[in-house]
Design a binder for these strands. Sequence first.
DNA 1: CGCTAATCTAGAACAAGTTCCAGTGTTGAT
DNA 2: ATCAACACTGGAACTTGTTCTAGATTAGCG
Lengths: 219, 219
Amino acid sequence: MTAEASTPTGTGTGSPRGVTPGTPPLTERQEARRRRILHASAQLASRGGFEAVQMREVAEAAEVALGTLYRYFPSKIHLLVATMQDQLSHLHTTLRKRPPATSSPSERVAETLMRAFRALQREPNLADAMVRALTFADRSVSPEVDTVSRQTTAIILDAMGLTAPADRPTPEQLSAVRVIEHTWHSALITWLSGRASIAQVKIDIETVCRLIDLTAEEG
Amino acid sequence: MTAEASTPTGTGTGSPRGVTPGTPPLTERQEARRRRILHASAQLASRGGFEAVQMREVAEAAEVALGTLYRYFPSKIHLLVATMQDQLSHLHTTLRKRPPATSSPSERVAETLMRAFRALQREPNLADAMVRALTFADRSVSPEVDTVSRQTTAIILDAMGLTAPADRPTPEQLSAVRVIEHTWHSALITWLSGRASIAQVKIDIETVCRLIDLTAEEG
DNA sequence: CGCTAATCTAGAACAAGTTCCAGTGTTGAT
DNA sequence: ATCAACACTGGAACTTGTTCTAGATTAGCG
């Protein structure tokens, strides 16, 4: 029935392994288009942040018609959130390579997040575009935003040392992780809009990470 | 030199007392216009959230020309952030009336924030518009966003019992308060976009508020 | 190969935020 | 009372996200 497989509006975080269930597989050419679009998005975002990512320009840079762009990503927000998924999966694999060797879980998480922070710092405009899109997203983007949230959660749990599928985190730990995520996003925004210094962000990250030790003691 | 006083693009949180320094005073008619605009903004937001606040409609509802609206609030984001300042000052005075009588500071803060949360719950569309604007705001809105942040901080410090000017909060406490604010905003967004339940928000608020006890013990 | 259904392209068209302008009304000062 | 300076109005115009349409391409299938 479908020609180039069916509708490309799927998740596809760019995770190397795993067949992304539910998403009909894309043709090579379609996969290439998707990749070109995400690349153009990231490139434009790196230049001028959120506002520099203009749908017409993305389409042109990706050598794709405007209608096609909208077929792949139904809105600018969807596009930028997908861009964030993409970047986050890169970041996660990068972070995995050299896990922090600090003693306590809370310090490891804080260290990991500060590394991530420094990574984003290198492309503040890109970070701006992605995070603004993420927090501005409305219900229509919830599934995609949720994916980003799960990715972030995975990074944090990884840093805590909860990689084994056996030791599932307690509800308290999950709450602490959510709070850390909240703080992470919000602190990032605060820094990006010039209302907080890097030092302040560092302190706040370290502050919130203490919650991890708290839950560990009582659990 | 100026006719109806000078440019009305000022802060003016709507605080009843205090002369809002730096802001040139507005004529009565100007003050009335400003009030009409904010009222129209809140009304439209209550109906359909962020997207329902359309500048042309705000102008029409406030019986003001579009250009005038932009003279008072240089962008939709500015307008909504100012709306939030307005609502927050109402909220603050409301909360002051019946301070929670719970024992520990952290419980008082959690209780206060949950009250605020329930207040916003009554007008979820308005909350949506305001919070989305707040986190979407870029650098050009930093001063106004900062005012909102200070208002929120004041509410939290109030709940902690740090009203006396003598006992200034320690740096650790300030960091904890910032983290609580981050969590508050982000959790609100998560709830508004349907990605978290009220119960979850409650738990996360309580979780983050434990940081207060932490800083108190060590301080 | 030829058919069919779906995708992709190019471009017009629409929506809402923002800017601009010419004319009118108000205000404070002389 | 008059004047200059500024504010307000009404409306057009511009920008960018989004939608729509007609026609050219492509993929899968007999």
